[in-house]
């Protein structure tokens, strides 16, 4: 099975889950920016968690399916036109060979994740027009109405709303939080941070009034993580995202909690949010809760897919 990109979107790429284990040699873990959408996409087509998915921004690529398959798209909530039918995010969709998928505007979110049954074979870098993306296995499902009915949705949608928040991103304080004065800490809570145009998979630059007025010297380089809030010499924040460098020398005033990273990844350039400080035990509790909810939804997907295909 394969799909072909007949019109490239903005920075389409194939992504797995973060690839850890080589950060000590300077290799960024990378992987899908929105890991929740990544996991949901795979669950909806019966894949393992780490199967490779297609990450797209908006406007997204136009795609043709070269063979019948089961696919879905998750992440930014949107609709798409599949030949003449409208299909929606978070649905498993069976598609015939030759069908064309075009995403509709607008979308609620910044990134769309498309998964096909079996997962894509990994290919590095930015995808171009006419690229063919191979999948690791075929979808052996014969359905009636070939030639007449181009798409069937399986009739249900996974509700992923509970995983995303839009106004407040929660963070824990970092080792250099103390570079902020008492007054700066008080002001911080009321500030809005706008995602600057110069933001990418490495990091989001956050536009705000300067949050810190003392010039802090550059520190000895030390490890940073996805979500680290770095304070630049101009008193502004950079939050590190999937393709972050493994080490850095800017003061680290905090880190976005893991449970809120998917929400941040779905915020489009130009949108704003506030930051709320919480303690690490609360961050752990929220992460565990999120994992439990995710597993429940994954199990529901598995059950529904089994049920659907056993009836046929």
């Amino acid at each position: 099975m394969s799909i072909q990109i007949i019109k490239a979107g903005i920075l389409d790429s194939l992504q797995g889950l973060p690839d850890t284990g080589k950060q000590h040699q300077g290799f960024s873990p990378g992987g899908s920016m929105d890991t929740i959408a990544h996991l949901m996409a795979n669950a909806l087509v019966g894949n393992k968690r780490d199967a490779i998915v297609l990450e797209m921004h908006i406007p997204a690529a136009v795609i043709v399916f070269n063979k019948e398959t089961l696919f879905t798209f998750t992440g930014a909530l949107t609709s798409a036109t599949l030949d003449n039918e409208t299909v929606y995010s978070n649905q498993p969709i069976i598609v015939n060979a030759g069908s064309k998928l075009t995403f509709n505007a607008p979308a609620n979110g910044a990134r769309i994740y498309l998964a096909v049954h079996g997962g894509f074979l990994f290919k590095k870098g930015r995808l171009q027009k006419n690229d063919v993306l191979l999948t690791s296995q075929n979808f052996n499902y014969h359905f009636e109405g070939v030639g007449q009915l181009h798409a069937l949705t399986t009739g249900w949608t996974a509700n992923t709303g509970e995983f995303y928040r839009s106004n407040i991103i929660r963070c824990i304080q970092g080792p250099n939080f103390n570079v902020l004065s008492q007054k700066e800490i008080e002001d911080f809570e009321n500030k809005q941070f706008e995602i600057d145009l110069q933001s990418n998979r490495m990091g989001f630059r956050l536009k705000s009034d300067p949050i810190c007025h003392t010039i802090t010297p550059e520190l000895l380089s030390t490890a940073v993580t996805r979500g680290t809030l770095q304070l630049t010499p101009a008193g502004q924040l950079i939050v590190l995202m999937a393709d972050h460098q493994t080490t850095g020398g800017y003061p680290r005033i905090g880190t976005v909690i893991s449970a809120d990273m998917a929400s941040l990844a779905q915020m489009p350039i130009g949108s704003s949010f506030g930051i709320k400080w919480i303690d690490i035990q609360e961050a752990e509790r929220l992460l565990l809760q999120q994992e439990t909810n995710l597993q429940q939804l994954e199990n529901a997907c598995k059950f529904r897919l089994q049920e659907y295909f056993s009836e046929k």
Partner: peptide, 21 residues
């Protein structure tokens, strides 16, 4: 534990919370 990252004067241990838990 997924990564052990040495630096000039520090060591950072990165872990998968759910697996450790």
């Amino acid at each position: 534990v997924t990564d052990i990252i040495p630096a000039y004067n520090s060591v950072t241990v990165v872990y998968d919370y759910v697996t450790v838990y």
